[in-house]
Simulated assay, not measured.
Amino acid sequence: MGILVALLVLSVLIFFHELGHFTAARFFGVQVDVFSIGFGKKLYSKMIGKTQWSISAIPLGGYVKMKGQDDTDPTNISYDDDSYNTKKPWQRIIILLAGPFANFLMAFLLYLAISYMGVPKLLAYVGEVGKDTPAYQAGLQKEDKIVQINGNNILYWENIGKQINDSKNDITLIVEREQTLITLQLKPKVIDDQNIFGEKITRRIIGIGPLDKQTTVYYGFIDGFGYAWEETKRASLLIFKSVQKLITGVVSTDKLGGIITIVDVTAQASSAGILSLFFFTALISVNLGVLNLLPIPALDGGHIMFNLYEMLRGKAPSDNAMYYITLVGWAMLISLMLLGLYNDVNRLMG
């Protein structure tokens, strides 16, 4: 059941991505010949207007085939008025950007729904207090509730680490213990650590862990938009940084996951509940949006680069150059997919 949910989630995300391209293309008067979810043999198709809407056998992507635009043969162009090729470069760029934009919008809407469904957050109660730590030496105790750090109100556990790291000197804690407020002075300890990308960093700690005590935060109509915007922005920056670290070699290529990992983790998220599924689906949606903006020929980002070149030079790259550059792009894309699949198989085999 989890695998079916995962494939459905991927299909929905692909549909929204391609719907973005389709909507922008039709807005500018471009004829769309095919709108397909999946690749390979068509399982179902129906002509609506001049567009063939299809569901294909391999649910690993999708495509919108516009008149005069063919990734498999970039020399196959058309100069009819309703062709992609006859549109101005800035119009083509908007058509190309519409797909990734739809993914970011999808993530935003999912985070918005999460904000109204209720976001689980750990409360700022102290659970574990490590021995010989600044917290232990200052007298912090289990079940103390941290109310303020350096005059800043603390509502949730997630706020504590940032306040400690942002402080340059000693910190002042106000904690609630048995309905009494107590003020404590601490000198954080600086330790060597690693961030999520495995890079060496230093951070300040006081030596405490959270108590398993949480609440559900329901956002109002307006506040929900703020939450959705911040979460979409945070997820986008995380994916951008991840790609950057992968390209620069900070993150090893064996960390790259493929379709098997995506399906597996999505299935796990679905079994954990609708909230977990929404969170992970939003992250995948942002991932699709960011990856499609990479300047690789055969991806939206690569086509955007071609059109920017045409805007700057006043002419498009030659048909011959477009053909070979697109071949290189497909080779890069297929290589990345095979690498992800190879890593998936390795992980499955332990």
Rank of each mutant, 00 (worst) to 15 (best):
L338P: 08
L211S: 03
I247F: 14
N320D: 07
L327N: 04
L43V: 11
A316S: 14
S54A: 15
K121C: 06
M305L: 10
I284P: 00
F104Q: 04
D344T: 11
T232R: 01
I14V: 15
P74N: 03
I208W: 01
G118H: 09
L211V: 04
N103C: 13
H21N: 02
T75V: 09
T248D: 05
F104G: 01
R347Y: 07
L10T: 06
F197M: 01
L333H: 07
Y227S: 09
L7I: 15
L275Q: 09
Q214F: 02
E143G: 00
L4C: 12
V290K: 01
I94D: 04
L294N: 04
E18I: 05
Q214V: 08
V30T: 11
F279Q: 13
G249R: 10
G2N: 09
D192M: 14
Q148C: 10
I259T: 15
L7D: 10
F108Y: 07
V147Q: 05
V126T: 04
T326A: 03
Q185K: 15
F278M: 13
V175I: 12
Y136V: 09
N103V: 13
Q244V: 02
P120K: 09
I208H: 02
S285W: 00
G350A: 05
D144P: 01
F104E: 00
V12Y: 03
V251T: 11
F101A: 15
P317G: 15
Y79N: 07
